[in-house]
């Protein structure tokens, strides 16, 4: 009985400590990020103002428009296929971006983590230095690289790998390359952070048991750095979904992504309630996925750290 009480007391103390540690950040977040979002929840139930903004008149029209499309010409109601195809394009490109960033970022993080300790921070800095320049100028630099007379095509033509320039600019490939470039540090750094203290004696032990390199990678290294991989994937996937500048510049602006669609409602479309409803929908989808992930992570990591 006594130990039970002690245990309960310790638990209480731990929870209190956790809340104390979290409070300062929560205050900033609630004041400057989540709190203001309540304004958006409110807006999504109002009527669009004539020239942007909102009118204080209750309406669920915006939520209806997220999923359904009332034809402007004959008033027939259908599923909003324009919104769906934009959502699908965004999800597909974001997924491919995350995958590419992982395939390139994992070996890079591994490489950095296996350097001598005193040079690791230098390598990390090298990853972030290109990002000291402005996002727009970086995107334009990529445009310069992949255009028809750009560096890649000139090189491939010179070595004779192709005899016609590859038409990459203003395609989904261009967007994919651009987004990978923009977001790859968000993959490398978290993976590195969880890999840096990796105990290579484990690997040694595995080799002693005649494991192949591939098996070591899959069965020992990957599971242990999983938190970093997941953190990196979240950091790449979610911002890609709402990306705005890169798709616009490298995609030639012909096709919208989710970020552009929402921006349109707050800008020239002058339909703030729809913009609010669209982004809350996006928020809900991602939040559900994240919470689902946290719950399942808690389940299989339950005994972690005792």
């Amino acid at each position: 009985m006594a130990t039970d009480n002690l245990e309960a007391l310790a638990y209480k103390k731990e929870v209190k400590r956790n809340w104390l540690l979290s409070t300062p950040a929560l205050i900033v977040l609630v004041c400057a990020a989540s709190g203001p979002l309540l304004i958006m929840v409110l807006f999504s139930f109002l009527t669009p103002g004539d020239y942007g903004g909102v009118k204080w008149k209750w309406s669920t029209e915006a939520w209806f428009q997220v999923a359904f499309y009332k034809d402007i010409f004959d008033d027939t109601v259908t599923i909003a296929d324009a919104h769906l195809s934009i959502l699908w394009r965004s999800v597909r490109l974001s997924f491919l971006t995350t995958l590419t960033a992982f395939l390139l970022g994992f070996p890079t993080a591994y490489f950095i983590a296996t350097r001598p300790p005193e040079t690791r921070n230098i390598w990390l800095f090298l990853v972030t230095i290109p990002f000291w320049t402005n996002l727009l100028i970086r995107t334009f630099a990529i445009l310069e690289i992949i255009r028809n007379h750009g560096v890649i095509n000139s090189f491939l033509l010179a070595v004779g790998a192709i005899d016609q320039p590859l038409d990459m600019l203003f395609t989904d490939i261009a967007i994919l390359l651009g987004m990978t470039y923009v977001y790859i540090p968000l993959m490398i750094l978290p993976i590195y952070a969880s890999m840096e203290r990796f105990d290579f004696r484990l690997v040694e032990a595995a080799y002693d048991l005649y494991a192949s390199r591939w098996r070591v990678l899959r069965k020992i290294i990957l599971p242990l750095v999983k938190p970093g991989v997941i953190a990196g994937s979240i950091l790449v996937f979610i911002p890609s979904l709402g990306a705005y500048v890169t798709p616009r510049v490298l995609g030639g602006g012909k096709n919208l992504m989710l970020g552009n669609l929402i921006e349109l409602q707050f800008g020239q479309g002058r339909n703030w309630p729809l913009g609010a409803a669209l982004s809350l929908t996006l928020l809900a989808i991602v939040m559900i996925a994240l919470i689902f992930y946290v719950r399942s992570a808690q389940k299989d990591g339950g005994g972690h750290g005792h």
């Binding site: 669009p48 004539d50 020239y51 499309y69 402007i72 296929d81 324009a82 919104h83 195809s85 934009i86 012909k254 096709n255 919208l256 552009n260 669609l261 349109l264 409602q265 020239q268 479309g269 002058r270 339909n271």
Partner: peptide, 20 residues
């Protein structure tokens, strides 16, 4: 001039359709 709100709504629908 800037178009009235109901016309603007149709513009936006056309524009979204064009870029979907």
């Amino acid at each position: 001039p800037t178009c009235p709100p109901d016309v603007q709504k149709m513009y936006t629908a056309i524009w979204t359709e064009l870029q979907k």
